[in-house]
Design a protein around this nucleic acid. Structure first.
Lengths: 183, 183
DNA sequence: CTTTTTGCAAATTCTTTGCAGCCCA
DNA sequence: TGGGCTGCAAAGAATTTGCAAAAAG
């Protein structure tokens, strides 16, 4: 079993290997052609930024990063592009407790991973477990399904929340102070 | 491994055994007392209707059923009550692809189950697999977490969608014709 | 040139809140 | 009584849509 350690919330630490990104870009180009989509700088930018995001970005976060490179991109374009990316199978969306849709890179080539979420402080860890995946396929097969993707989220208490009974988690404030900076 | 068969979308087929409902009701009463909540006919009605729902009801569906018994109940009360039920650990919420929050009965006594969702027709199957659960606890333990609850959703193609390449799924229309009957 | 795409703002949808009156304890 | 509870309507938040101007092929 392999697991990836501790990557709390959004700021991406290490972008995906350029190789993988190219695989997805190729798939994106293919999708564009197949659907007669035009190539626009905004869309390409959004796709690029998205593919460089490590994990589960919200539209707001994504747009923020996109605007670092082109300040004139609007929300609508991001929403529209994410819809395309989902259709293209490059992105999947997730809902953790807060009312935000988060997106992350998807695809058969991706080393898939699941999430472990602390209900007290919102810390999100990632992990991967081949055996679980195998059992999932098993179950699906038994019911006649063919699995395309899946979503596994474990909710509980992180070590910190457990260790200090009644105490705080580091993230607790940062969640409350969530700067809702949309105009 | 045990699995529960085929219960497409909402209309509940078989309510939970009265025994189980009583366990939850007892827990609810306990929660009420502990939180100094008053007993009101609306809330009790909502709780009762909810506990009798087989699976993943949306607020809209829930309210509709509640109104069969008391037409004057409002959305706000349902939302507020569902929040309490979640706090009380009697309900958990889920998001499948449509922009609706769905709720379902939860609790340690519940034989927990996960979902298998057809991306073509929206069919939702349920299943349960103890071994997967065990592996989940395992992973969590390794990362120092204590799991409270979890969410496993497998997305793919149902037998029908697989069997008839390019063909339709039964549910396809009913999803499109989704009567958005809110005033 | 034609067709898509964009950005804005307005519209929708789902959910939460403020508040006056109602009701349980 | 008196603080919680309800229903309504208004407020919020996230996402979608209509449209004229801009960009792509």
């Amino acid at each position: 079993m392999a697991y990836v350690e501790d990557r709390p919330h959004s700021p991406p630490n290490q972008p995906l290997p350029a190789l993988d990104i190219n695989i997805w870009k190729r798939r994106w180009v293919e999708f564009q052609r197949h659907h007669g989509l035009k190539t626009t700088s905004q869309r390409e930018l959004i796709v690029d930024v998205f593919l460089h995001c490590q994990e589960h970005v919200s539209v707001e976060e994504l747009l923020q990063r996109v605007r670092e490179r082109n300040a004139r991109v609007g929300y609508a374009t991001v929403y529209r592009t994410m819809k395309l990316l989902i259709e293209a199978g490059l992105a999947v969306c997730r809902h953790f407790g807060d009312g935000q849709t988060r997106y992350e890179v998807s695809g058969p080539e991706t080393p898939h991973h699941d999430h472990l979420i602390c209900e007290r402080c919102g810390l999100i860890l990632e992990f991967e477990n081949d055996e679980i995946e195998r059992l999932q396929d098993n179950v699906a097969q038994r019911l006649g399904f063919k699995i395309v993707r899946h979503k596994l989220e474990l909710y509980g208490l992180c070590p910190k929340a457990l260790g200090v009974p009644g105490g705080h988690c580091p993230d607790e404030e940062s969640r409350a102070a969530k700067t809702n900076s949309r105009p």
